[in-house]
C-alpha cells in the first residue's frame, strides 16, 4: 500500500532523511517513534507529497510520487492526514469543515457530503457539535473532528502526525479511543506518536527513527520485547520509566 524506497531529503545542506526504506501493507498499523528531530514527522509528510524529497521514491497505492505526471491533489485524497495542531478551518463550521473537500476535490453534492459528514461526526461522538465553529470545541474534540474530516474522503490509508502531542493529558484518551476503534475496523494506518500504550495495543509493527535513519523496523512483540539497537533500547527506557 505504501512503499518507501531509499528516500533522502535535505533542507539546504542538512540531511533530514538518510535513505529511509520501509513498507506498510493493507490493513497494517505501523507506529513510527523516535526522539524529536529524528525525521519521523518529515517522513510521514513525504508519504502524501506535503514534503518533497530529493532522492528515492515513494509508491502510494501503486502510484509513484516521483513521477512528474502524478496528479498530487488526486493522489492525496487517498491518504487521509491528521496533524499535530488539528488544522481545522477556523472560519468554517464543523459540518462545513467536513464537506468542503468532499465537494471540491471529490465532486460530491452537498447532500451526499453532508450525509457522509453527519455519519462520521456521529462515529467520533460529536453529533451535538456539528454546527459549532472549531474555536468553540476543546482540543480533543477538534482532533476528533479532524479525524472525521480525513475519513470523509474515504481514504485507503490514514497518516497521523503526532495526533496527541498538542493535547492536554485528559484529552489524549478520547482521541486514542477513536484511533484504536479505527485500527480495529481494519484501516491501514501510519502513526507518528510517543504513545507507547497505543502502540502496544494496536500496532502490528514499530519503526524507530533516529537522526534521519530508520534504526529499527520490527514486529511489535520484538520491539517491546528486545529491541536490537542500543539507541532504541535507550529511547524505550527513557519514555517507559514513568
Amino acid at each position: 500500500m505504501i512503499e518507501i524506497k531509499n528516500v533522502h531529503k535535505f533542507y539546504g545542506a542538512i540531511q533530514v532523511l538518510k535513505g529511509c526504506t520501509t513498507t506498510v501493507s493493507k490493513g497494517e498499523v505501523v507506529v513510527v517513534c523516535g526522539p524529536s528531530g529524528s525525521g519521523k514527522s518529515t517522513l510521514i509528510k513525504t508519504v502524501n507529497g506535503l514534503e518533497p524529497f530529493q532522492a528515492g521514491d515513494i509508491v502510494l497505492d501503486g502510484i509513484s510520487l516521483k513521477d512528474p505526471k502524478t496528479d498530487l491533489p488526486k493522489l492525496r485524497v487517498r491518504a487521509g492526514m491528521v496533524f499535530q495542531n488539528f488544522e481545522l478551518f477556523p472560519h468554517l463550521r464543523v459540518i462545513d469543515n467536513l464537506c468542503l473537500a468532499q465537494e471540491k476535490a471529490l465532486g460530491r453534492t452537498r447532500a451526499e457530503a453532508e450525509a457522509k459528514g453527519r455519519q462520521l461526526i456521529e462515529r467520533v461522538g460529536l453529533s451535538a457539535h456539528i454546527d459549532k465553529f472549531p474555536g468553540q470545541l476543546s482540543g480533543g474534540q477538534q482532533q476528533r473532528v479532524a479525524i472525521a474530516r480525513a475519513l470523509a474522503m474515504d481514504p485507503i490509508v490514514m497518516l497521523f502526525d503526532e495526533p496527541t502531542s498538542a493535547l492536554d493529558p485528559e484529552m489524549v484518551t478520547e482521541v486514542l479511543d477513536v484511533m484504536v476503534e479505527l485500527a480495529k475496523s481494519g484501516m491501514t494506518m501510519m502513526v507518528v506518536t510517543h504513545e507507547m500504550g497505543f502502540a502496544r495495543k494496536v500496532a502490528d509493527r514499530v519503526i524507530f527513527m533516529d537522526r534521519g535513519e530508520i534504526v529499527e523496523d520490527a514486529r511489535k512483540e520484538d520491539f517491546f520485547g528486545k529491541p536490537r539497537s542500543e539507541r532504541a533500547q535507550m529511547f524505550l527506557s527513557k519514555i517507559l520509566q514513568h
Binding site: L50, P73, V77, F83, E87, H91, M153
Partner: peptide
C-alpha cells in the same frame, strides 16, 4: 502554514486552497 498543508492533504488544488481556506481567513 499548517492550514495550507491541511487543505492540500485533503486533495484541494492550489487555487481551491486559496479560494476556500486561505483567502477567506
Amino acid at each position: 502554514r499548517g492550514q495550507q498543508s491541511a487543505g492540500y492533504a485533503l486533495g484541494l488544488t492550489y487555487w481551491q486552497n486559496m479560494r476556500y481556506v486561505v483567502l477567506p481567513q
